[in-house]
């Protein structure tokens, strides 16, 4: 057994080892198409099914963007951040600072101007939420490392303060977040009507997932984050400061929550300060289903939750109220650690 390939270079060993690579755990991946296929006969009409599925995927992508940072924040430092939703709200409200004054560009029938306006709004929202995330970590999280109860209380408190600050700055009335003109309307594909904006949301969600995947698998920082989620102590023993990694993850996670807030706000078109706290429960369900600390699990979990919500909402509206909880119970009965469990310590 030893010395099976005595003189190969590491690179050659790499290639041959790929062939013998242990199969990835595909089962959770199979649930999504299975669920969609199962829903098709129940929904009955193919065009309706297409509409529901794409709506579900779009919603799932937006939830994923909001939740992805949170699962890493928990995984890396065991920090329960119930204030994550605040960054969703702040992101959405910050976007109004760009999109409302830039009415001309937003209402113009030009994809380029629309995209520019949206790009600026996203940039500002992510910068603001990223900076606030940095401050939040320093002032609120740092004193309560390792103390779960205090983390829950103080981050909940942070969330309430943030909501009230939004009331102070933007008033208590709900305000509009105008959707750029060219994103409105539906595309007719076959007999199915698909909202354009949903396709855009799916595109952005996929892009975020792809970037995260590349960073976490191909860069040293990403590998360190994954290693840190698994065994932070060992990462420190190898000579890396996990605190610094964590601050970076916290900033990126908050900025992603901000991006999620902008997308979610555009989707709803009107904003209230509670937009973040409304999504918090959903986000927590998603990261629990996915397995705390797993970005891949979070992605599948978000899509699952959103698809189930959409199908249930169409088939049995009353069940839709509890469908997320039922889904979570079912997944946890199957895999108590979530879809992809990350070995801890």
């Amino acid at each position: 057994m030893p010395n099976a390939m005595p003189n190969t270079t590491p690179a050659a060993a790499d290639a041959s080892a790929l062939l013998r690579r242990v199969p990835i755990d595909y089962l959770p991946l199979l649930i999504l198409p299975l669920l969609a296929l199962l829903a098709l006969p129940l929904v009955g009409s193919f065009p309706t099914w297409v509409t529901l599925t794409i709506a579900g995927l779009a919603m799932g992508m937006m939830i994923f963007i909001m939740a992805s940072g949170l699962t890493l924040i928990f995984g890396l430092m065991d920090v329960l951040n119930f204030g994550h939703g605040a960054f969703v709200s702040i992101g959405a409200f910050t976007a109004t600072l760009v999109l409302l004054p830039m009415k001309d560009w937003v209402q113009a029938d030009s994809l380029l101007l629309n995209l520019l306006a949206l790009g600026l709004a996203v940039l500002l929202a992510m910068t603001v939420t990223g900076l606030l995330g940095w401050a939040f970590e320093r002032i609120i999280i740092r004193p309560v490392y390792g103390l779960h109860l205090k983390q829950i209380l103080i981050t909940m408190g942070g969330m309430i303060v943030a909501e009230q600050m939004i009331h102070v700055i933007w008033g208590v009335e709900q305000i509009p977040l105008p959707m750029p003109e060219t994103f409105r309307g539906v595309l007719i594909v076959g007999d199915a009507a698909v909202e354009k904006y949903r396709l855009i949301a799916v595109g952005i969600g996929l892009a975020v997932f792809a970037i995260m995947f590349l960073v976490l698998n191909r860069t040293k920082i990403g590998l360190l984050i994954r290693a840190g989620v698994e065994n932070g102590e060992m990462v420190e023993a190898l000579g890396y400061r996990i605190r610094r990694l964590f601050v970076g993850v916290f900033i990126a996670g908050s900025a992603l929550a901000g991006l999620g807030g902008v997308l979610w706000g555009l989707y709803k078109e009107t904003l209230t300060a509670a937009i973040g706290s409304e999504t918090t429960v959903l986000v927590f369900i998603v990261i629990i289903i996915g397995g705390l600390g797993s970005v891949g699990g979070c992605f599948i979990g978000a899509l699952l939750v959103a698809l189930v919500t959409n199908y249930a909402g169409f088939l049995a509206p009353k069940v839709a109220l509890v469908s997320n909880i039922l889904l979570m119970v079912a997944i946890l009965l199957w895999r108590p650690q979530g879809l992809y469990s990350v070995a801890k310590r």
Binding site: P10, D14, L223, R226, A227, E230, N231, E233, M234, E236, A237, L238, G239, Y240, R241, V342, A343
Partner: peptide, 27 residues
């Protein structure tokens, strides 16, 4: 702090080995 001690030139192999199971041997 542990990272500084590590950088000073001490390597540690803990009893539970502390390998990163999710990462490849190479990583």
């Amino acid at each position: 702090a542990t990272p500084d001690i590590s950088c000073a030139g001490i390597a540690y192999v803990p009893e539970n080995m502390g390998i990163f199971a999710d990462l490849t041997v190479r990583e």
